[in-house]
């Protein structure tokens, strides 16, 4: 009897239609909310940053936020290139260091590790992701930077004479607060992100593919190269992009260890600056156009993140097409 009642309810026509409509409206508004919020952020930021947008803002690496000669002819200059450069260099170091490590850890966890070790390592890596960035920053200035100083000196002595490497590994800053230190700290911070996503992706590789590789007499490495990596390329690139996004936006840890020097130099052992770091450092005492310039740097960061994501999508699509072609 009750069962009949229920089924009658379910099949009642307009009720189902209303629920369906409601559900549709909810989902669509949730989806659009994201776009609207993003658009509003961009609009308000551009509006507030507008007074600072000038040719200098995008093309100069000179940053003179004060008026050096009072009423004289000198004016404040808000050039952001040095910060942009710092952000890109530091993120690049982080990704270059973190990607092989993370992919290695993920492969180890999915293909090699015994079950018991696997859970322990996964827990540890997840813990690493939960450490607040300010802790990484403090660890960076108190422990890592002083410890890396001598290492940089050694690297400089060994590699300093070689043409390209020599300019990358130049005379190191004694305090150890450098592009390299910031990049390494960031690498540690993004390893858990890339690892956990890459692990999930590797786990989706069909067993049949792997078995097929084994059956053809592949070694473990050949199996990974032939079956696991091609299947998961897109996912791994996605993981790297997420990590890169985190690295570019990271504020406090970078602000603490990068050394806060406004300069563009190929020397990775020199102090530099990054976009989020300068915003957090100088926001409190800024006024007028200075504030606008800081907001403008936020816009620049926003745009770069979007661009990086678009490029990554493009790369993934190209690669996937090529691989599917090879498979067919």
């Amino acid at each position: 009897m009750t069962i009949l009642d229920k089924s009658a309810q379910l099949t009642r026509k307009d009720r189902g239609r209303h629920a369906d409509r409601l559900f549709w409206a909810l989902c669509v508004s949730a989806g659009f909310a994201v776009l609207v919020i993003l658009a509003l952020i961009l609009i308000t930021m551009v509006k507030q940053a507008y007074p600072a947008f000038s040719a200098d803002f995008f093309t100069s690496s000179t940053w003179i936020p004060n008026d050096p000669d009072g009423d004289g002819p000198g004016k404040p200059v808000y050039g952001t290139l040095a910060f942009l450069y710092g952000t890109l260099v530091v993120s690049a170091i982080a990704v270059i260091v973190a990607v092989p490590v993370s992919v290695g850890i993920a492969l180890f966890l999915t293909e090699l590790a015994p079950r018991r070790i696997r859970t322990a390592i996964v827990t540890l890596i997840d813990l690493l992701a939960a450490v607040p960035s300010v802790v990484f920053g403090l660890w960076g200035i108190l422990v890592v930077a002083p410890a890396l100083g001598p290492v940089y000196t050694w690297l400089h002595d060994v590699l300093g004479g070689i043409p390209v490497l020599g300019s990358l590994f130049g005379e190191p800053r004694s305090s150890g607060r450098t592009f390299m230190t910031a990049g390494l700290i960031l690498a540690i911070m993004i390893v858990p992100i890339i690892t956990s996503i890459a692990r999930e992706v590797f786990a989706t590789v069909p067993d049949s593919d792997k078995q097929a590789a084994w059956a053809l007499g592949a070694t473990r490495w050949e199996m990974i190269k032939g079956a696991v990596l091609p299947h998961s390329f897109g996912g791994v690139v996605g993981a790297v992009i997420l990590g890169l996004g985190r690295a570019m936006g990271e504020t406090i840890a970078v602000a603490l260890v990068i050394g806060s020097s406004v300069q563009i130099t190929a020397n990775l052992f020199e102090s530099g600056y990054a976009l989020p770091a300068i915003i957090v450092d100088q926001w409190g005492e800024s006024t007028g156009v200075f504030t606008s310039a800081l907001i403008g740097m936020g816009v620049v960061l926003f745009v770069i993140t979007v661009l990086v994501n678009l490029v990554a999508r493009f790369v993934v699509r190209r690669a996937e097409i090529r691989m599917r072609g090879a498979a067919a």
Binding site: P68, G259, S260, S261, V262, S271
Partner: peptide
């Protein structure tokens, strides 16, 4: 002194900064 005054000034690049 050529750097002027302010809450932040354009310090030479080979100086160090702390929070």
């Amino acid at each position: 002194w050529k750097l002027g005054s302010g809450d932040t000034v354009a310090w030479p690049a080979d100086t160090q900064a702390g929070a």
